[in-house]
Simulated scan of single mutants.
Amino acid sequence: MPTTLIYETHATTLDNEQGIATGWLPGELSAAGRQEAVELGMRRQGVDVVFSSDLRRAVQTVELAGLEAPHFVDWRLRECNYGELNGRPRPELEPRRDRVDTPFPGGQSYREVVESTRSFLTDIRRLYDGAQVLLVAHSANRWALQHLLAEESLEELVAAPFDWQPGWIYGV
C-alpha cells in the first residue's frame, strides 16, 4: 500500500497579510490564520503522523489544528532562506525564476529547498510505508513536491502565482 502524503501550507500569518516575505524568520499567525489552523485540524483528522517545518508559523498551525497524531518538526521543511531579504516586502524578491539555481544574497536557492525536500521524502518512504502523512510547510516546499512528485518544471512553478487550496495529496 503506498504512502499518502497530504501537504498543507501553514495558516495565514501577519506577514502574509502585510505582503512580507518571512523566509527563515519565525512568523506569527494572524487571527484569520488561527481560524484556518482549526479548520485544517477538522479536515485532517485521522492522519497517522504529522510533520511540519520547525519555523514557528508551521508549528503553531499544527498546534492549533488539535490533531491527535504524533507531530514531528523537521528543519528540512523550512521555507526558502531569502538571506538578506528575509522579512522584506514580497516585491523585493521578484522575479523568483532567477533564484532557482542562484541563491538569494546570504541565503539559498529554490533548488536547495528541492534537495532538502527530496531527503525528507526518502525518509518518509522508508519509515512510513502505507501511512497517511500530513506535511505542514511553506510555498517553496509545495513547489519542491510538485517538481519531485509530479515532474513539473521548477522554473515554471516558482514563476507562477501561488494558488492556495485546502491541501494537495500525493502518493509517495
Rank of each mutant, 00 (worst) to 15 (best):
W24D: 13
S139V: 01
G27E: 05
A37Y: 02
R57I: 03
V73L: 13
V113A: 11
N141M: 14
A160S: 12
A21F: 08
E28L: 12
G19T: 07
I169H: 01
S139Y: 01
A131R: 08
D98I: 14
T12F: 01
P166L: 04
T61C: 15
E79H: 05
V47P: 13
V113G: 07
T117P: 08
R99D: 00
E36H: 05
V49Y: 06
T122I: 03
V73H: 03
R88Y: 15
L40I: 15
G33H: 04
S109Q: 10
L29I: 01
N86Q: 02
R99F: 15
L145W: 04
L148E: 02
Q45G: 00
H10S: 12
D48Q: 02
R99T: 11
V62Q: 03
V59T: 02
V172W: 15
L127P: 03
V158A: 02
D123E: 13
Q45R: 07
F51M: 04
E39T: 08
G41L: 03
P95V: 08
V133D: 09
E155R: 04
L55W: 09
Q18I: 00
R142D: 09
D129A: 06
Q165D: 06
D54T: 09
F162M: 04
D123N: 12
L5C: 15
S30F: 02
H147K: 07
D74V: 11
G167R: 14
I169N: 03
V38R: 13
R56F: 03
P166H: 12
G171A: 00
A144P: 14
H71S: 09
T12H: 12
N16R: 15
E152S: 09
G66I: 15
P103G: 05
A31Y: 04
A32L: 01
W75G: 13
F162G: 00
R90M: 14
V158C: 07
Y110N: 07
D98M: 06
G130N: 06
E63R: 12
L25M: 11
H10N: 12
S52Q: 08
A21G: 03
L77S: 01
R118N: 06
R76M: 11
L67V: 01
L14E: 15
G33F: 02
G27I: 03
Q18E: 09
R125M: 10
V133A: 08
L121K: 01
D129V: 04
I20S: 05
S116P: 04
T122F: 06
E79W: 03
G27F: 05
L134Y: 01
E84K: 07
L40Y: 01
L154F: 04
G41E: 05
T122R: 06
C80M: 08
L135Y: 04
R90G: 06
G167L: 07
E156V: 04
L148S: 10
T9G: 14
N16C: 07
E68V: 05
S116C: 15
M1F: 14
D101W: 15
G33Y: 02
R43H: 02
L40A: 00
E94C: 00
R56A: 10
G19F: 13
S109K: 05
L135F: 08
H71Q: 11
R90D: 07
P70C: 07
E115Y: 15
T13D: 03
V158G: 02
P166I: 07
R44Y: 04
